[in-house]
Amino acid sequence: MMRKLLLIFALSLSATLNTYAENSLSEESEISLITVAPGDELYSGFGHSALWVEDEAKGISVVFNYGTFDFDTPGFYMKFVRGKLNYMLSAGRISYLIRSAKAENRSVIQQKLDLSLSQKNQIYDYLLNNIRPENKFYQYDFFFDNCSTRFRDLLEEVLGSGLSWNKQAEGYTFREFLDIYLEDKPWQDFGIDLVLGQPTDQIADKRNEMFLPDMLMYHYDKATYEGKPIVKDKLAIYEAPEKQESSSFQILPQHLTWLLCLIGIILSVRHHKSKTSDIWYNKLLFIITGLIGCLIFFLWFLSDHVATVDNWNMIWAFPLNIVFAFLLFKKPAKKWHTIYYAVFGIAQFLVLGFFYTLPQALHAAVLPIVLYFAFKSFNLLYRTKKMNV
């Protein structure tokens, strides 16, 4: 989640870790959950989690981080899109983490854990074993297996049934959580909404909402082991200055899509009155939505991403729109052309009628697109039939 930080963490401590592995932690050792606040960039917009093991008596101070990946992986971008990119556990110095956070104006919170020496050593041994070359890679999943959930799972494995997560779940869906973090990034929010399917609209229970570093931190705050709080101290290692809120007007995705809808309707009315062709405008819309549909199809059927299946956006962003972009008003129109317009139009009307009650929450910017396609499909149906007379 923290791209620049991940690159820094990739700097080696492996040789030092081999030395550490020979020694157990002392009574003075501390294990802390480190939470880095969300940043301004999309890659850092959800925050970051790491685990800091420090033991002055043994000369140990190392931050473990499950959010790193290798940019030199063959086929990096295709593996990333298909959900097949392996992330890995790496180790770095706390000074690197703080320096990177300061550069990005992101606060860093430390939660010191109240654990027995045996539990500290179990956690440390677990991480040392996990960072071995044969164990350090795992298949990343943004919601269910990431740099944050790994430290939830680690604590559950070490503390067992004595651990209680006492904080109540917020009751938000995964998509609603993303909307909160992307509130000041409307275009990124729109893009992410387009590619995430129905699974994203499931309500996240208390365990699953810990996919967000902030939520993991809040759950650690309330967690107990055999009735005793596991966090004994919480402090800000670095507190970023408050950001100035911008009051400037921002063009939102729904502004653009309503404008496109209006222009399309105006062009259609002009065509009806003056025979001015709107064919290129509609070709462009059909091509764009068809390309979006191809991306949705790819992520749904050809990737391992859990959250991109069952995507209702394909009703309007249908891959065949690309084909029909080149068949608009082509003489003579085949019967199956008119069938496509009719079926496509009916589907748009159904989406309009149930827009706010669908199993998947569609972005507000989608509404004018669906409205225009509902209108345009039957307009095309009428004009195609008239053209064949």
Rank of each mutant, 00 (worst) to 15 (best):
I369E: 01
R132K: 15
L6S: 12
D72S: 11
L235F: 13
Y382Q: 07
S148E: 10
V62K: 06
S32E: 06
L115K: 04
N146Y: 11
G162W: 00
P332N: 09
L159K: 13
M2Q: 04
G264Q: 04
S44P: 04
H363W: 04
K273I: 12
I369G: 02
E176S: 01
A374I: 10
E54H: 06
I8G: 04
I287S: 09
N311V: 12
G39Y: 03
T73R: 01
F329W: 14
E56Y: 00
A325C: 08
L216K: 01
G92M: 00
Y138N: 08
L155T: 14
N121T: 02
E183K: 12
I315H: 09
L259Q: 01
L178Y: 04
S32A: 13
V63H: 01
E134W: 09
S49N: 10
L362N: 07
K283E: 11
L117Q: 11
E239G: 02
L320K: 02
Y341H: 15
L128C: 08
Y356E: 13
I98E: 13
A21E: 14
I287C: 15
G75D: 13
M1T: 09
G75F: 03
K228N: 15
P229Q: 07
Y238M: 09
N388D: 09
L127A: 03
Q254A: 11
I296S: 05
P253L: 11
I34Y: 01
F329S: 05
M387D: 07
T276E: 15
L371T: 08
Y281A: 05
A240Q: 11
K330F: 05
A365K: 03
I339G: 14
Q198K: 12
K275Y: 13
Q110D: 09
Q168G: 09
S61T: 07
M314V: 13
A57Y: 14
S248N: 13
D214L: 06
E104P: 02
V323M: 14
N321D: 09
V370G: 05
F64V: 10
Y225L: 10
N23F: 11
Y220E: 01
K275G: 11
D179R: 12
Y340D: 08
H363T: 01
L51P: 12
